[in-house]
Design a protein around this nucleic acid. Structure first.
Lengths: 97, 97
DNA sequence: TCGATAGTTTTAAAACTATCAAACAACGAT
DNA sequence: ATCGTTGTTTGATAGTTTTAAAACTATCGA
């Protein structure tokens, strides 16, 4: 299996793409406000989005390295990777408060 | 003329979209490094991009509020709107250094 | 094991984005 | 005036992104 080594700017592009959507920004803002992990279903219900659309957005955030997912029984819990935010966009999360 | 009032997240989406492209990130990085305005032609030549493509990217950055353009004779000089960066993405520019 | 619940994947349509050539507009110099 | 330079706009094309229905996988409880 070949793993492509991404340049700094490729990483940034990936992250900015992930954040350049209102639904995903709302997910990030919610997770930051609640200061705790939330289940996919809970988030999807609050934001009132189709579950496959929600799943697509969770995948986009996860693949950009912005969130982590933890499976518990039939649920999946999403939480923010604050270390990545702090490294690439220091101070950004605090502007959401 | 009607001016739409953008929400905070709409502004962020606009800015993240503008930054989610390698060419535009390179333009921003160059302007930040040089710490001075640069002409469109100079930037386009350094990055080796077609002039209409370059113009498209300048427009994208300008419309997101990230740059300002000043016309001098037949040239146009582009500079960073550091205040916008500092407000929406505090600390980001420094990560480019 | 069956049924319900929670998420993912596949697929397709619609909307959007990046690129380039060609035509255009604005300016300065001759 | 016309020419060369600098940058914008337009229109075409190729590729990407977002959305949602339908089919699928995994887990739990009865």
């Amino acid at each position: 299996m070949i793993i492509k080594q991404l340049s700094d700017n490729e990483i940034r592009v990936h992250i900015f793409k992930a954040l350049s959507d209102e639904v995903r920004l709302n997910i990030v803002a919610m997770l930051f406000e609640k200061k705790t992990e939330m289940s996919c279903g809970e988030i999807g219900e609050i934001l009132d989005i189709n579950k496959s659309t929600a799943s697509y957005h969770f995948k986009t955030l996860r693949e950009a390295g912005l969130t982590t997912t933890r499976k518990v029984g039939q649920n999946k819990f999403v939480s923010l990777n604050t270390a990545v935010f702090d490294k690439i966009l220091p101070g950004f999360l605090d502007t959401l408060a």
